[in-house]
Design a protein around this nucleic acid. Structure first.
Lengths: 290, 290
DNA sequence: TCCGGTGATACTCGAGGGGTATCACTGGAT
DNA sequence: ATCCAGTGATACCCCTCGAGTATCACCGGA
């Protein structure tokens, strides 16, 4: 493996910054360096790879096909690198033998799977050799990042919201969906609804959640967390389709109506492949037995 | 994200070399540098992470817990980094827009799933916008590495032999198992056998395949590829439990007997998560429709 | 036509990565 | 007891290469 064939972390960081900003000056500022060294570094990277990564049109920069590939792969590689640093540091202090971390970081989406989470934590803590579990509250879709870059060891994720791609996982719980409506809305008195009845309501556009960092198009408001959603529903501005367990956080101004035909939500416990720490294995076993 | 928190590729390469050799001198030779800079680099890495990675006992070096974590995570990170370089280079030459590589590299285990592979290649080639497919023959369990470090875009893998951990995959074909015996062996005349009848035969120890780079313990010969196996069976020295499709490569000196109770083998098509190239998506679709 | 803003180039400086020589320590053979 | 082979660590020097400053070349728009 020739050393000149290998990308340095610094080069990847620089390229990802430029590719995300599509602007050398801003990228350099973000990286805390001056613009000229950045230009040179990118040129050198292109020479080394023998492939143009950026189209320099005056008035801005755009990615070539190879550039898009390197952006995706480079992000992943950077994540893996920082994950290595973080997990190593966390594994510090521990003993000399092969045991990894004695503290597990569990990434959870705020206010999701509350019951399940409580049961899991209780069941695990009751075990004799339980490790300490640190909870890492995440925004929507953030668990994937946390798991990937080493800030978390294990996560609770929900399909079809979160992507399990690239992780090992076990299914924990499948639940139906409810429509959460303002209590004052005409449909709030129904005992059941079908999905088509709550989509495309002109007076009550469904809230939109980010998928992979961007929002799908639509008339409804863009939501970042559950509190925002709860408030907007209470104000009669929007409605949402949620897992049944969301009943735990409903307000008096909310109404929940079971949906008959919405695709179910499944909560999984997920972890990076090839993790082999004993505390993690025990937590997973505990979760499956719930 | 503080820059001092980030590991350089060079540091990872150095550490992985030392951790694998458990010897500074040999590691330095392998890296093509002198020993003193290597010692310094590792010390610096330990200082930076704030964690001891190696126990320096005179007479050799051993890994601490944190060291083992960094070895595993560092290998993964290095793989991801070289994968980024390779895939970017391969995506070169292509156009300016978001399209990735126009040539797909398919990793296959030599002589496995021969029929399936032929059908897949034919069906794919018959499509209008088929990309060129390059076949990358692999040793046992090598597809995982090829996929991980970017030498391959997609692979055919078999459970329970290969691990699909960390990849996306689709099931293609499940087949039973046969015992492959020397034609002269008494059991060769049977029409079916059970697993217990072919294991623990004192005169015919089962061949051993590597799992994760090492061989399980046992009396049988250690096998690296299918040709070696075929030869040893023909010579009456060993027997093996193979998928049914192995009948395609049997010799006259071989006999195949169906096994009634062996766990089946499933061939999957697997690819790195988050791959989004059109040719790959088409190949996967073609494979599923077979 | 000039100006604001883009990225590239020229030059200089200094940190740090790499080399050689050597040390300090240990286990084992005699 | 002594010496030797072999380990990793230290001391010291060189020089590459990454980063900064100043400047250029080029374009779009008022």
């Amino acid at each position: 493996m020739d050393t000149s064939e290998i990308l340095e972390t610094r080069e990847l960081r620089y390229f990802v910054a430029v590719a995300e900003e599509l602007h050398f000056g801003r990228a350099a500022r973000r990286l805390g360096i001056a613009q000229p060294p950045l230009s040179r570094a990118i040129q050198q990277l292109e020479r080394r790879l023998g492939v143009p990564l950026l189209n320099r049109n005056r008035r801005g920069v755009s990615l070539t096909g190879a550039g898009e590939v390197l952006l995706a792969e480079g992000r992943a590689a950077l994540c893996a690198t920082t994950a290595a640093a973080r997990r190593t540091r966390r594994a510090g202090g521990a003993g000399h033998s092969g045991v990894a971390c004695e503290r597990l970081v569990l990434a959870v989406k705020a206010a999701a799977s509350q019951e399940l989470l409580r049961k899991l934590l209780d069941a695990y803590a009751a075990q004799p050799e339980a490790a300490e579990i640190e909870l890492l509250p995440c925004g929507i879709g953030e668990q994937e990042i946390m798991l990937r870059d080493g800030r978390a060891d294990v996560a609770l994720m929900q399909t079809p919201f979160d992507s399990l791609a690239g992780f090992d996982s076990e299914e924990l719980l499948t639940e139906g969906r409810i429509a959460v409506l303002p209590a004052s809305h005409p449909l709030a008195t129904r005992t059941t609804l079908s999905l088509t009845e709550v989509t495309d309501l002109p007076d009550l556009p469904l809230a939109r959640w980010p998928r992979n960092g961007t929002y799908p198009p639509g008339p409804g408001p863009e939501i970042r967390d559950q509190t925002q959603l709860a408030q907007l529903i209470a104000l009669g501005r929007t409605a949402a389709v949620c897992p049944e367990s969301s009943r735990t956080w409903l307000w008096a101004e909310h109404a929940a109506v079971a949906l008959t035909d919405a695709p179910p939500v499944t909560t999984h416990i997920a972890w990076p492949p090839h993790s082999r720490s004993r505390p993690l294995a025990r937590l997973i076993r505990t979760a499956i037995q719930l």
